[in-house]
Write a protein that binds this DNA or RNA. Structure first.
Length: 495
RNA sequence: GCUCCCUUCGUCUAGCGGUUAGGACGCGGCCCUCUCAAGGCUGAAACACGAGUUCGAGUCUCGUAGGGAGCGCCA
């Protein structure tokens, strides 16, 4: 006798209706996804990708995205982690349509199901001690089998004094569970491989695999999109869903994201709080764009706006293989979004970075202008801010190589002429200042490079900056003239 | 150990039985040019291995190897 899934019932039916393109009342086809992090740490790249796919899938199909905080492990769950998750999601714009729901607020409901299952004989009390279980597992291993519970209390058993029992779910003993996964295809598990898992601890609190099932059923989740690491939990969950007499959602198990060296993502790789990416000057949509391409693609397209992601995303195109996080590519993607962004939007972000770097954003050119001039030249707002230092404060010393090459005695004449010409420019604009520089070059019979480069070093302390007219506007007339004087003095001193 | 999953350039990927195996990041070269970027052009760089199915396999099947996950009174 096999425990085959009844694919025509529950959520599966609504899914079929959807893919068949039937137009049904909204409520009947409403797709509901959920992101269910446990607040035992910050929101990192891997979780964000999962949240993104859930959110995208819901948005794409006009469905709802639900946030559920799985905080049943009271030892490890913290409010700080909850806040970090909420803040991270808010920054990314991944707004839930419902929630956050907290599992710790649903204990009564879990209790209710457990009592019911106990009464129906779908669950039972087990009085094994942790020591016994450990021994059981060790012995099973030694015999070459899976370390698992042998079901010794499955058919009843005497309570043991001093042992608070756990509650176990009576998993079917034989037959198979078929998971029809949107990413993996059909995956079959033998019930014989599964044991009777604990659904409530001896202190009465429910455990993960159980609460997930109750919540997914109660919340009407139609699509469970989650990390690959849960694929092995799926058959147990399906069995419990059936015990609940609930429909089975459509599953989609996403591949893992590894570090750049192919090993598990860790701090060293960027498994840091997503909010750290904001501090590093990344745009939320850029991070999302980079992440959406990890495991998903749409032909050769690399850059997606949020709207495009929503319009194009689908589970069918999700890759089954794990991928590696590549910081360089993230930066490139970010740069593409930065270049496409309106300076007005970027300006406050630049101000934030400048302040963080100890500068006064008001002591220099308008931020919109600065960001417009520098956004091609830095991949993150942080880099852009770094390149903008000399427009908001005096630079310390000349870059040695640049000064050696361009601030030589031969340049003094040009610099003096430049000082005079620039002092006389009526309108301090890119065009007019650049014309003044070109004019000096022509009068002295020098190539533009021979004039612009010394001037550039005089203005910013090094041989790299935006176009010379732009640089002059950035520096401003007063500072420009002062800095030309400074360069002249430097040349004189070097003799 | 057992079960499940995965495998195209260094990395992200396209490919859905017939391709000079395409694109992107990164790397090299050239162009543009007042420097640096941006942009354009261009080069090197991949189907893990072995059988089978087929007229034909990166694409289908099965093995092998390698990697990953699960096997908790964690989630």
């Amino acid at each position: 006798m096999t425990e085959q899934l009844d694919a025509s019932r529950g959520c599966d039916r609504t899914h079929r209706a959807t893919i068949a393109g039937f137009i049904q009342p909204r409520a009947a086809t409403m797709i509901r996804t959920r992101f269910a992090p446990s607040p035992t740490g910050v929101l990192h790249i891997g979780s964000v990708r999962t949240a993104l796919f859930c959110w995208l899938y819901a948005r794409r199909h006009g469905g709802q995205f639900i946030l559920r905080i799985e905080d049943t492990d009271r030892e490890r769950s913290t409010q700080a982690s909850v806040d970090a998750i909420l803040d991270g999601m808010a920054w990314l714009g991944l707004r839930p349509d419902e929630g956050p729901f907290y599992q710790t607020q649903r204990f009564d409901r879990y209790r209710e199901v457990i009592e019911q299952w106990l009464a129906e004989g779908k669950a039972y009390r087990c009085y094994c001690t942790r020591e016994e279980l450990e021994q059981m597992r060790a012995e099973a291993m030694a015999r070459g089998g899976k370390p698992r519970y042998d079901g010794r209390y499955r058919n009843g058993g005497e309570p043991r004094p001093g042992v608070e029992p756990v509650i176990r779910f009576k998993n079917p003993l034989d037959g198979q569970v078929v998971v029809d996964d949107a990413v993996r295809g059909t995956v079959v598990f033998d019930n014989a491989e599964l044991d009777d898992l604990i659904i409530a601890r001896s202190d009465g609190t429910p455990t993960y695999n159980f609460t997930v099932v109750v919540d997914d059923a109660d919340m009407g989740i139609t699509h469970v999109i989650r990390g690959d690491d849960h694929l092995n939990n799926t058959p147990r969950q399906i069995n419990m869903l059936q015990a609940l007499d609930a429909g089975v959602p459509r599953y989609a198990h996403l591949p893992m994201i590894n570090g750049s060296d192919g090993t598990k993502l860790s701090k060293r790789h960027g498994a840091i709080n997503v909010l750290d990416y904001r501090e590093m000057g990344f745009l939320p949509e850029a991070l999302l764009n980079y992440l959406v391409r990890l495991g998903w693609s749409h032909g050769d397209q690399e850059i997606f706006s949020l709207e495009e992601m929503i319009a194009l995303f689908d589970l069918d195109e999700v890759n089954a293989a794990a991928s590696s996080f590549n910081f360089e590519k993230l930066k490139w993607v970010n740069h593409q979004h930065v270049m496409a962004a309106e300076p007005a939007r970027l300006a406050p972000l630049l101000a934030e970075q400048l302040r963080r770097q100890g500068l006064d954003p008001n002591d220099g050119p308008p931020l919109e202008y600065t960001v417009g001039a520098l956004k091609e030249r830095g991949q993150t707002l942080q880099e852009i801010a770094e390149r903008g230092h000399c427009y908001y404060e005096e630079f310390e010393a000349y870059d040695e190589k640049s000064a050696h090459k361009h601030l030589r005695t031969e340049a003094a004449e040009a610099l003096r002429a430049l000082g005079e010409a620039l002092a006389a420019v009526p309108d301090w604009t890119e065009q007019d200042t650049e014309a003044a520089v070109a004019g000096v070059a022509e009068r002295l019979g020098l190539k533009m490079g021979k004039v612009a480069q010394p001037l550039r070093v005089a203005l910013v302390g090094q041989a790299v900056s935006p176009g010379i007219g732009t640089t002059l506007v950035l520096v401003g007339r007063a500072r420009a003239l002062t800095r030309i004087e400074r360069a002249l003095n430097y040349i004189a001193a070097m003799g």
